[in-house]
C-alpha cells in the first residue's frame, strides 16, 4: 500500500461528508460515492477516516469498497477511458476496440498511464446500444467506434 498522509483539510472534508449523512452507518455507500467524487479514489487512509466516523470497522468499509465495481482504490487518469463491454457492444466488436486502446496506451484494463493522463476500464452497458460499440472518455460518449478510430480519440486529449 502506498504510504500517503492525508492533509488535515482532506480529513475534515471527509468528516464533513460523513456528518452530512448523520454519521449513519447505513449511509456508507452514499458517503463513499461523495468522497470518491471529491477525492477521485478511495485509498486505505480515506477508508480509515470513514470507518472511524461511521463507527464501523475498516474491514467493513474495505469490504464494501472492493465489492462494488464503481469504487476504486487506484487514482484514475485525467481522462478516464471506459469501453462498454455490454453484449450489444461485444457483438459489434468492442473487444477489438479495447485491444487497440491497450496497444496504443500500453496499459492494461484497470491501469493508469505513466503520465497520469489516461486510465482504462471496461463497463457494462451505458444504454446507448444503438451506437455500439461505445467508448466513454470522462462523460463524453463516442459511438460506433472502430479500431481505426482509436488513435483519433486519444489524440483529442493528448495535447
Amino acid at each position: 500500500m502506498v504510504n500517503l498522509k492525508l492533509s488535515e483539510d482532506k480529513i475534515n472534508q471527509i468528516k464533513e461528508i460523513c456528518k452530512s449523512f448523520n454519521n449513519e452507518k447505513g449511509e456508507l455507500i452514499n458517503v463513499l460515492h461523495k468522497t470518491q467524487t471529491m477525492y477521485g479514489y478511495l485509498p486505505a487512509e480515506v477508508q480509515e477516516v470513514i470507518a472511524r466516523e461511521l463507527n464501523v470497522s475498516t474491514a467493513h468499509v474495505y469490504g464494501v469498497v472492493t465489492f462494488y465495481s464503481f469504487f476504486t482504490m487506484i487514482p484514475k487518469g485525467e481522462f478516464p477511458i471506459s469501453i462498454c463491454m455490454g453484449t450489444a457492444c461485444y457483438v459489434r466488436g468492442a473487444e477489438k476496440v479495447l485491444d487497440e486502446f491497450k496497444r496504443e496506451l500500453k496499459i492494461a484494463v484497470g491501469e493508469t498511464s505513466k503520465d497520469g493522463k489516461f486510465s482504462l476500464s471496461c463497463l457494462r452497458c451505458v444504454g446507448a446500444c444503438g451506437l455500439a460499440p461505445v467508448v466513454l472518455v470522462g462523460e463524453k460518449v463516442y459511438g460506433r467506434v472502430s479500431p481505426d478510430g482509436v488513435k483519433d480519440i486519444i489524440a483529442e486529449y493528448k495535447q
Binding site: 455507500i29 452514499n30 463513499l32 460515492h33 465489492f67 462494488y68 465495481s69 464503481f70 469504487f71 463497463l123 457494462r124
Partner: peptide, 8 residues
C-alpha cells in the same frame, strides 16, 4: 434515492 455502485 439510493445509489447502486455497480454490482449485477
Amino acid at each position: 434515492l439510493r445509489y447502486g455502485a455497480g454490482a449485477f
